[in-house]
Amino acid sequence: MGKTQIAAAYARRRAEEGWPLVAWVNAETDDQLLAGLDAVAAAVGIAMVGEDAGQGARRLKDWLSRQSGPCLLVLDNLTGTELAAGLLPALGSVQVVISSNRRQVQALGAAVPVEVFTVDEAVAFLQERSGRIDEQGALLLAGEVERLPLALA
Rank of each mutant, 00 (worst) to 15 (best):
R59E: 00
A43W: 04
L33I: 15
A110C: 08
V44N: 07
A110Y: 03
A90Q: 10
R103Q: 10
V94H: 13
N77V: 09
L88Y: 02
G50I: 13
A43R: 06
T118F: 04
T79H: 13
A107K: 02
Q106F: 12
A57V: 07
L87H: 09
N77F: 05
Q55A: 13
A41R: 08
R103N: 11
S65W: 03
V49A: 09
D52H: 12
V119Q: 15
L60T: 15
C71L: 08
D38C: 15
L75A: 02
D38F: 15
R66T: 13
L108N: 09
R102G: 13
F117K: 13
S68P: 11
G86S: 01
D52G: 09
A43Y: 01
V114Y: 08
L34A: 13
R102V: 08
A35Q: 10
R66W: 10
Q55C: 07
Q104E: 13
G56L: 14
I98L: 00
V97Q: 03
V40S: 04
S93R: 08
P113L: 10
S65E: 07
G92C: 02
A90P: 07
A42F: 06
E51I: 00
R59D: 01
V114C: 09
V112H: 08
A84Y: 02
P113K: 08
G69M: 12
G69N: 05
V112W: 09
V114Q: 07
V105W: 01
G109Q: 04
G56I: 14
A39D: 09
S93N: 14
V114P: 00
V105Q: 06
V44H: 04
A107W: 00
V97N: 06
N77Y: 10
V119R: 15
L83Q: 08
G50Q: 11
S99I: 10
G92Y: 01
K61R: 03
Q106A: 14
G92V: 10
V44D: 11
D76F: 08
A90W: 03
G36E: 04
G86F: 01
V105S: 04
E121P: 01
L78R: 13
Q106I: 02
T81Y: 02
G54L: 13
S93I: 06
S68C: 05
L88W: 03
A111N: 01
A39I: 03
T79E: 09
A35W: 06
L75W: 01
L87C: 14
W63P: 01
W63G: 06
L33V: 15
R58F: 15
L91A: 10
A41Y: 12
